[in-house]
Design a protein around this nucleic acid. Sequence first.
DNA 1: TGTGTTAAGATGTCATACCAATCCACTGCT
DNA 2: AGCAGTGGATTGGTATGACATCTTAACACA
Lengths: 249, 249
Amino acid sequence: MAERLYRDIGEQIKEEIRAQGLKPGAKLPTERVYADQFGVSRTVVREAFIMLEIEALIEVRKGSGSYLIKVPGDGRLIKSVSEDIGPFELLQARQVLESSIAACAAEVVTKHDIQLMQDILELEEAELDSVEKSDSADREFHLLIARATQNTLLLETCTQLWDLRERSPMWKALHSRFKDTSYRGGWLDDHRAVLGHLRRRDPQGARQAMWQHLENVKVTLFALSNTEDPDFDGFLFTSLRPDATSGPL
Amino acid sequence: MAERLYRDIGEQIKEEIRAQGLKPGAKLPTERVYADQFGVSRTVVREAFIMLEIEALIEVRKGSGSYLIKVPGDGRLIKSVSEDIGPFELLQARQVLESSIAACAAEVVTKHDIQLMQDILELEEAELDSVEKSDSADREFHLLIARATQNTLLLETCTQLWDLRERSPMWKALHSRFKDTSYRGGWLDDHRAVLGHLRRRDPQGARQAMWQHLENVKVTLFALSNTEDPDFDGFLFTSLRPDATSGPL
DNA sequence: TGTGTTAAGATGTCATACCAATCCACTGCT
DNA sequence: AGCAGTGGATTGGTATGACATCTTAACACA
């Protein structure tokens, strides 16, 4: 119950919306009504409404009322972005999405983009013994690829994936064991391979190289994982590709 | 500026954070300080803080203060999710991402998933003359594919793309011209083709079918577009694939 | 030196008041 | 009957002050 009250009330309001079967466009009870109903002040209900508004679930019209934009999803099927997500689930998603983004980037990448990536990789090599800095360069390299697609949404998607990583407690726990930096040399080689395919504007090569890179990351992390952790999601590591015939193509 | 005050203050706070070069982990000024500085009540500042908190930019610790999690993006480089995005930029992103998601789904899809998709497609066929309902079935079909991957993040990503579509004014404007529903028959055939590859657990086929489907959607939309609109982003339609040699593989 | 206490300062919640926009029913004219 | 206008009731928007609760750090004491 360490949760903030407005979040609690916000979730309860979502439940009510679902329970009452309200449809988009429907008018919600007023702030004052909810305040009475839940036994809290209007302030808290307003804060909960702001939460729903930012989540694009409702629209608030001054003097009129609040209206449902879309029915809130059942939080059990779709984890909230704020919740923690297992490292391997995240890596699997990155593998699927980023390999395609790399392929897309390979088709439209400019000399300038290539130069920027080159610079970042040199920086990464120079800072290879600093976990902090090489990690930052790592992120920057991946985001540069997404940016090279010139598609805002692909960049946004990629950014979200990395933000999620940085916020994940489970990832941090895993990351804290990374005293050994030897594996980073291998990742740098992976990065160079990806850049090579981008330079040659080879979409399939870029896709495959990126896929392999994230595969290598998974293998490294798996070796470092505590497989007895009840929250451990390493089973995702193997479950995705049951047969060897299906490659990243 | 009919904007709500808390949003305005929230953006101003973001600017201040950038201007003062605060780094993640840094302690922000207190709510009362901001209230004085901007000449508003603490209520409004609290609402702005809640906005930043939901956007995962800050963390509010009771009794201690508020702390920066990450520096807010410049808004100009990365469009906020709330901003409008051109239909073709969105479609391009969907093409890149959803085709990979389909390939991934083909490897792990279950009989039950297949059955659900089958049902949805029958529903889509039955409601083919209702733009509203067939559109809903369309969305459901695509999300079912993402869900079949059993990866929360892939489903989340796909959901976000569709939410963006429904919220986009430009898309709505384009969509309002869809009096003619004949093209929907073609899309239904596309869907069936995708489902066929999923049933055969054929990743490459599923990828290609999904790619082609969204290509068809782009072609249809392009024909219906007003190319004189200054905001028209149809140039993305052709710019992504300058050569014919690079396929969805 | 270490530890328990305390006070200052921060967010959390509440109650109230009043403002501003909207809605709606009623009025009164045509 | 139809219509425009008007004013009250409703609803969200903002401000203010009070008090609760938690955190932190300075302080006093053993």
